[in-house]
Nucleic acid binder design. Structure first.
Lengths: 246, 246
DNA sequence: AAATTGGATCCTGGATCCAATTTAGAGTAT
DNA sequence: ATACTCTAAATTGGATCCAGGATCCAATTT
């Protein structure tokens, strides 16, 4: 009989934390990192006392850190019941691509004329690193960094902030599903073509590449999720989808 | 005589959605309202102790409330220095309009085919209420509600969430400055024309109206802010450029 | 045996106390 | 007078303690 695995926090954090900053900030960023890259999977309940002892502090800074992470959408807190890591909702992932198709081409258009050689070199470095990266976490992170390198000079801080939010969402999603999705080699060609167009400063071609890239990514994920839904019942043990358990 | 049925409690009590008035929640919403209304003007420093005694509680729930308001962008908290109410839209923050020009037309486009008569009636009700509203707070709120009524059926929750964030920013700004800006009669015509186009289902016309509306609003605010800056520093000082200080 | 109830235990919310940091002010020297 | 230093008050950050709600389990009832 399939027991549902209850995630715990054992061995998630390395005990190295240096108190360079305020405790609540250290804890907040540590928890955010851990949630983002999947070391703390969705649905995990976060006990204040447990986290406090893990970091060697009292529950107080933990509480403030949890409060902020809740506002950032990473946690769900219920009164007297505690904090639970937010589930990855498939619909949210799809919605994100709709938003990104609006925001990112505009950011690229604004940024393109101001891109320096250094920016392009950094983007290129991301691609070479992407080629030899193996684990999903690194792949997802490099993917985000590549995109941001191209948008960086857009000059609209609010726009860039929103894009970063969306990319963080995607990064978290990919960290969980990339290995099961079959790498996505076509995304690599898209990236190369996009960088190439950006190098030549060809706005319309770059925008077209970017739009195609995002559309294909959306299509791939949509297919992947549909397959998962179909395979959910007959196949014995498809990769777990967050929120599936009871 | 039929036996009297055994009475039960089903349906006697409304399933109250606010089970417990936690102090931190009460304080959070009270502070948010006060900040949005302008009872607490921008740049005001918020002392934890002062708020705590005002609400008859300790500083603890105040701290958690402040922490969340910070994440919502209404406060700015610095370590050991405390919380100050965030400044309103200024010259640097005008790029929210650039974002809105991307997000809102798309939301309208997606929503337009699914708008029901009820939706249109609600939007219309907002406009009639707008016509007789006098205070800035009501005007600003109705403006937001009118826009959201038209976007409501877009079907992309993430998109709608982002738009609500942007509209909330504008609402707070308008509450403060609408009276000084000269009401904005042209905005009213814009709204009428937009609703009219939405009623007829004419997508291209509705989108054009909306884009024009947003552009004009941006233009009006930009002008207003420029005038304020000039009036603030008559002759002697050069007008402050954002980011110039220090 | 199933359902309801009483209660032990765990966990969170809030209060109070202490430590760390900033800020204001007094005092002194230049 | 101005600038600088040092101290004390004010304010925030964190620890500890207690109260209240949630959850689980045994005891009692039906």
């Amino acid at each position: 009989m399939p027991r549902k695995p209850i995630p715990t926090l054992s061995g998630v954090f390395t005990p190295t934390e240096t108190p360079a900053h305020l405790a609540r900030d250290v804890i907040e960023s540590a928890l955010r990192e851990a949630i983002m890259d999947g070391r703390i999977p969705p649905e995990t309940p976060l006990r204040q006392e447990e986290i406090a002892t893990l970091f060697g502090v009292s529950r107080m800074p933990v509480r403030e850190a949890l409060r902020r992470l809740e506002s950032q959408g990473l946690l769900h807190i219920q009164p007297y019941k505690g904090a639970v890591v937010t589930a990855l909702i498939n619909q949210d992932a799809m919605d994100t691509y709709g938003v990104r198709l609006l925001l990112e081409p505009e950011a690229l258009r604004l940024s393109l004329p101001h891109l320096s050689d250094t920016d392009l070199a950094e983007a290129s470095a991301c691609l070479t690193a992407l080629r030899r990266a193996r684990d999903s976490a690194t792949l997802a992170r490099l993917n985000r960094e590549f995109h941001m390198a191209l948008y960086r000079r857009a000059g609209n801080a609010r726009l860039l902030y929103l894009i970063e939010q969306e990319l963080a969402q995607e990064e978290r999603f990919l960290r969980f599903h990339l290995s099961a999705m079959g790498t996505g080699h076509q995304a690599h060609d898209d990236h190369e073509a996009l960088l190439d167009a950006a190098r030549s400063g060809d706005e319309s071609r770059a925008l077209a590449r970017l739009r195609r890239h995002l559309s294909q990514a959306e299509h791939a994920i949509r297919h992947y999720l549909a397959d998962q839904d179909n395979a959910a019942s007959p196949a014995g043990d498809a990769p777990r989808i967050a929120g599936e358990s009871k």
